[in-house]
């Protein structure tokens, strides 16, 4: 066990460090980045088709995949989905509802998030959009990491099941800057362990870290929100960011911070074209 960890820590980070800085220096081209990002995984794991990446670690461990299939017979997120739907369909005290805040009544739109908001010049995740809707209707914001927010996200995401992820980075300096900041966050090492997101989820993707398979960054956002057995309940992508940051012994950002908005923006953009498959279940 210890050997695996050691090997991981000793892996050749130099390569990626230089790659990250080289990328940051070149002009921003999200489309080209996305092609290269997806191409990297497709070349490295030729047996895993693009759409299968939404199933994350299960492409790399038959044993885990078998257990997952059994768990998916009656997925543990079913309660959240159920609750989320009824919350979504419950009217606010002012008589309006969540549907009134979204295009198409909030149905089948999750694949378009995170979205750049030209009015504020910021990235808006679906969770943040839900909170905006609440505030606009005189309600308090929900915690972005778990609980009712994850339930509502589970339901809204389920209505986009199978739709191709379609995050847009418009030709707007602030949108491009947000994208670049997310990309830099992804490739920057941090914390006492000096890991970047890419250390585990690009370089070591598909390898074992103790008992778990490290999921490739490609496809990762597609299954959120998800029920993690380790949590024993639902969590959002932001909750996972916080967990990863803590794991490498760095101080997590705030759930609604620009850092996490931008990271979600970049990471989800990299998944463009993959089918939405949330809510999901993971160990």
């Amino acid at each position: 066990m210890r050997l695996i960890i050691m090997a991981l820590m000793g892996a050749s980070f130099a390569l990626f460090g230089s790659l990250a800085s080289a990328r940051a220096a070149t002009p921003i081209n999200p489309q080209a980045d996305m092609k290269a990002f997806q191409g990297y995984f497709l070349k490295r794991f030729p047996k895993v088709p693009l759409a299968a990446y939404v199933n994350g670690p299960y492409n790399f461990s038959k044993s885990e995949a078998d257990q997952w299939k059994q768990i998916m017979e009656f997925p543990p997120y079913q309660f959240a989905l159920d609750t989320g739907k009824s919350v979504f369909n419950t009217k606010f005290p002012n008589g309006k509802d969540y549907a009134s805040c979204f295009p198409n009544g909030g149905v089948g739109i999750a694949q378009n998030y995170p979205m750049f908001d030209p009015k504020t010049g910021r990235v808006v995740t679906l969770g943040i959009a839900i909170n905006r809707c609440r505030v606009a209707n005189g309600l308090k914001k929900l915690k972005l990491t778990t609980g009712p927010m994850a339930d509502i996200l589970a339901y809204m995401t389920s209505t986009s099941d199978g739709k191709p992820i379609n995050v847009v980075v418009p030709n707007n300096p602030k949108a491009l800057a947000a994208y670049r900041a997310g990309k830099e966050y992804f490739y920057s090492r941090r914390g006492q362990l000096n890991f970047s997101c890419a250390s585990c989820h690009v370089q070591e993707a598909g390898m074992h870290l103790r008992g778990n398979v490290l999921a490739p960054a490609l496809g990762m956002t597609a299954a959120f929100p998800l029920y993690r057995s380790k949590w024993g309940n639902m969590g959002t992508l932001v909750r996972r960011f916080i967990g990863c940051n803590k794991k490498v012994h760095s101080v997590p950002a705030k759930p609604d911070s620009a850092a996490y908005r931008d990271l979600a923006y970049f990471l989800t953009y990299m998944n463009n074209g993959l089918p939405v498959s949330g809510p999901g279940a993971r160990p």
Binding site: I71, E73, F74, P76, F79, G232
Partner: peptide, 10 residues
């Protein structure tokens, strides 16, 4: 108590 949280049975 060894049955998992939110038990499933088939």
């Amino acid at each position: 108590p060894a049955v998992s949280k939110n038990p499933f049975i088939k």
